[in-house]
């Protein structure tokens, strides 16, 4: 195991391990941990993964280093694409989306994995904080086989008992059939990754549960920074740190500029 790594590197490695070969990974804007994770998984164990960065679909497992940045729409990046899906078909052929994986952020997250990118404040027309907007998260979270909530910080400001607004529906007010009752075909959120740990959702209630603690973090610390009661199993494992190989590939082939170490 490696010892000297940043928490963002840890998050990227944890996320990469959970992605399977053959999956289609749809990455949105402004998520450096996710951008690194999908590339790392692609190089480590996913030669048949397809990476979709805003409609630019690529398989670059044959490359020694994976191109950055993802979000320039000029030809420096598009030249790696095998197709460009955004000629009017971003949300088509949904029957295949059980094999698609998506990643969302949020300015608020509630105990059932509902997320909010709209804003914060009781009155919609006078928000205290106007968020960036829903992007494509309402549609993607509805249809993909599973998605991950990935957050850059873990605080009571983000983890709230009730989102002021919901832009991506997770498990609603709870229950394993919450999504089926609404007719949402996708599998819902699987993990919520934060700088403190990995959270999942209890099988029956779908309430957020502490799944693993990052090295050096206590369960009390996580709970103290969470604005609602987490489901706390008796035994909570420590998140497995990056292996020497994972960190080597991450730093030399995915993130040589050290974006995740800043």
């Amino acid at each position: 195991m490696a010892h000297d790594y940043s928490v963002q590197e840890l998050m990227a490695v944890v996320l990469a391990r959970d992605l399977s070969d053959g999956e289609v990974l749809r990455v949105g804007v402004a998520m450096p941990v996710v951008e690194a994770a999908v590339r790392l998984a692609h190089l480590m164990h996913g030669p048949n993964m397809e990476l979709i960065f805003f409609g630019v679909r690529m398989n670059v497992a044959h490359l020694h280093t994976v191109p950055l940045p993802a979000f320039a729409w000029d030809r420096r990046v598009v030249r790696w694409a095998e197709s460009y899906s955004d000629t009017g078909h971003r949300f088509d052929r949904l029957k295949d989306w059980h094999n698609h994986v998506f990643f969302v952020g949020g300015v608020q997250v509630d105990p059932y994995g509902n997320t909010n990118l709209i804003g914060v404040g009781p009155e919609y027309r006078r928000l205290h904080f106007r968020g960036p907007g829903s992007v494509g998260t309402a549609t993607l979270s509805t249809h993909v086989g599973r998605y991950y909530i990935v957050l850059n910080s873990h605080s009571r400001r983000i983890f709230v008992e009730r989102c002021d607004y919901i832009s991506a529906y997770g498990w609603g007010t709870g229950g394993a059939d919450a999504r089926r009752r609404l007719g949402l075909p996708g599998g819902g959120p699987r993990y919520c990754l934060t700088p403190l740990g990995v959270l999942d959702f209890a099988e029956e209630s779908k309430r957020m549960r502490l799944h693993s603690l990052h090295p050096g973090v206590s369960r009390e610390e996580v709970q103290a920074h969470t604005g609602f009661q987490l489901v706390m199993p008796e035994q909570i494992p420590t998140t497995v740190p990056p292996t020497v190989e994972e960190l080597h590939v991450l730093r030399t082939r995915v993130d040589p500029q050290g974006v995740l170490r800043r």
Binding site: G136, A138, T139, T142, H143, Y165, A168, G183, L184
Partner: peptide, 13 residues
């Protein structure tokens, strides 16, 4: 018709 947004706050706001 569209499915994405069912269950969210979008139709409220």
């Amino acid at each position: 018709p569209w499915r994405g947004g069912v269950g969210t706050s979008l139709p409220e706001v």
